[in-house]
Design a protein around this nucleic acid. Structure first.
Lengths: 113, 113
DNA sequence: TTTATATTCACCCATATGGGTGAATATATC
DNA sequence: GATATATTCACCCATATGGGTGAATATAAA
């Protein structure tokens, strides 16, 4: 069967699979922040946050701009496009199935009457 | 900051983070299938496929209906709704940012002229 | 130059996971 | 009952990952 290959979707979905990372993205929606700023919002160590940030950076969801000793992080939602398209495809399929089921039920109702 | 908690999104995103599992879902779009049927499409062992199926089952994306010695698997895209909503939220944010940037550029253009 | 701050690097540890093999179980079939 | 098929269970192995700590590096500031 077709496309059984790793793609950039792997990274994006994996990155989003961790609640801490999703929370970091949520934080960045409220404005850019330094690593330390973000770490302050979480009960985990600064180093742990640094690792999560690198995972997000790898996917492109987070961009880093080094300014002196500060690393300023900002959100970049663009890489979500592919993931959104993937999900949308299945959502459409599913809605098709539901519509078909509805049609079937309606037909049965009509017949029975 | 807010919702730093694991949710069902964890499982769904993690499940989608593996290309084999995405391919299994793609396969089920073409019709229900048994574990063996699916395993035939992949270069990995039957047991490995069985494990992937359990991961998908846990998320609800895949449903199992045991019929004799056969386990018939079918797709259920419903759990994707929450994931789609999550992504959509960020996509909207991002489009807002782009729009703001465009406005800014246009204003600058007008001023300069 | 000295000191303080921001970040990463190099480790350690526990757990999860993707892959495998072989045995066990359950159902069909002869 | 005996045999074949479908699936899982119980392991093993290697690797990734989330968490930690302490040292190293780089820049800012005094």
């Amino acid at each position: 069967m077709g496309e059984y290959k790793s793609s950039s979707l792997d990274g994006v979905f994996n990155a989003l699979g961790d609640p801490t990372r999703r929370a970091i993205l949520a934080r960045l929606q409220d404005g850019d922040a330094r690593v330390t700023d973000i770490a302050g919002d979480f009960p985990i160590s600064l180093n742990s946050v640094s690792k999560h940030i690198r995972v997000l950076e790898r996917t492109g969801l987070l961009q880093r701009s080094v300014s002196g000793r500060d690393h300023v992080l900002s959100l970049n939602a663009a890489p979500l496009a592919e993931a959104a398209a993937w999900i949308e495809h299945y959502r459409t399929f599913w809605e098709g199935r539901l519509a078909a089921l509805e049609t079937y039920i309606l037909q049965r109702k009509r017949k029975r009457k």
